[in-house]
Design a protein around this nucleic acid. Sequence first.
DNA 1: GGGCGCCTTGACCGACCGGTCAATCATCTT
DNA 2: AAGATGATTGACCGGTCGGTCAAGGCGCCC
Lengths: 194, 194
Amino acid sequence: MTRKLTQRGRDRRLQILREAARLFSERGYHPTSVADIVASLKVGKGVFYWYFPSKEELFVELLRGAHQDLRRRQQAAIGDEPDPVRRIELGIRASMAWFHEHRSSFNLVQFAATEERFAPVVRHNREVAIADAVRHIKDGIVEGRIADQDPGVLAEAVVGVTERLAQAYLLERDEPVDQVADAAVAFCLRGLMG
Amino acid sequence: MTRKLTQRGRDRRLQILREAARLFSERGYHPTSVADIVASLKVGKGVFYWYFPSKEELFVELLRGAHQDLRRRQQAAIGDEPDPVRRIELGIRASMAWFHEHRSSFNLVQFAATEERFAPVVRHNREVAIADAVRHIKDGIVEGRIADQDPGVLAEAVVGVTERLAQAYLLERDEPVDQVADAAVAFCLRGLMG
DNA sequence: GGGCGCCTTGACCGACCGGTCAATCATCTT
DNA sequence: AAGATGATTGACCGGTCGGTCAAGGCGCCC
């Protein structure tokens, strides 16, 4: 049941999504009330419920949107690169850049994973992300460039390193993206090597 | 201001801590009310506030307690092992075992990191954990066994891999601890190698 | 101008939540 | 037996939150 929206309406919608993401990320999902969001936008409460059926659904949309956006960014960066190891490197670098530009999305996912209602969405998103990485890793194993171990485990490890370094050095310490990406790539490629 | 407690009282306290951890982990912190906790224990609400000043403080105690417990476990496992690389391996294995036995603590920390009020505690705990790992990594670099890179970055990477594999394979897929630990150690040691 | 449909307002509602407290019970000490 | 003190009860309170809705404005087309 999607509403008919004019251009003005679509803008408003995006405005709410962005502001909600910002506030959820800064204060947390539960401590941020719908009243906070609309007050921050200087509009009435009804505006929120004109564009979204509930606070919960808006949050799920944020989760799905972030995942889609990150994934598109990774795919764009990888393009048609034939070397699987290089594809992984490009994926890591693209993720770092995206995390840097979408700091708020980080906390959202981390919170969502801890709440029954949102965990399924996070799990699904993660499975997709891992499946993407697994494809390149399998290719690398076939070429003998990557250790012959469970590709799923290797993929989780790579994602773990990337996200952890992003959180610690990009978000908390605000270090240069390239430098952090270099470190992540160096560690991961060594870790993958056969 | 700590209360005088009899043995019975100390037991009750622990009972509340354990039950709260379980419920927070299963449903999330905010969706779990104090009423839920005491109802699950079949006691009156006053019992909770006899032992804890607030829901918030109980949660902080859970965070600090988990960190202390995990750290002790790591230190016990490492003992006086002289080889720094082996110390890191023992630390990873001890962490895996601890995560396996304290599944509920995982979600708590992850949630706490996303909420303003608890984030400082999480950050402090993380700094201590990283500082521990950094010591061994520095030793390894001096011995030429570990790549000469920022030890802090390497430590974060190792912790990232360990926690991610623990979450994905221990908690979500319930695979054997040793197997997951082996995979984490293999990836991390290769990643650290010079 | 007049009507129609997108958009906005904000008072209001029922539910729930964290926390309090006067009263009572239980157990140990003297 | 009689306090004293630890431990427990659950009704109650003020406040907040997600969500509703009747009413009204705003822009566009006939």
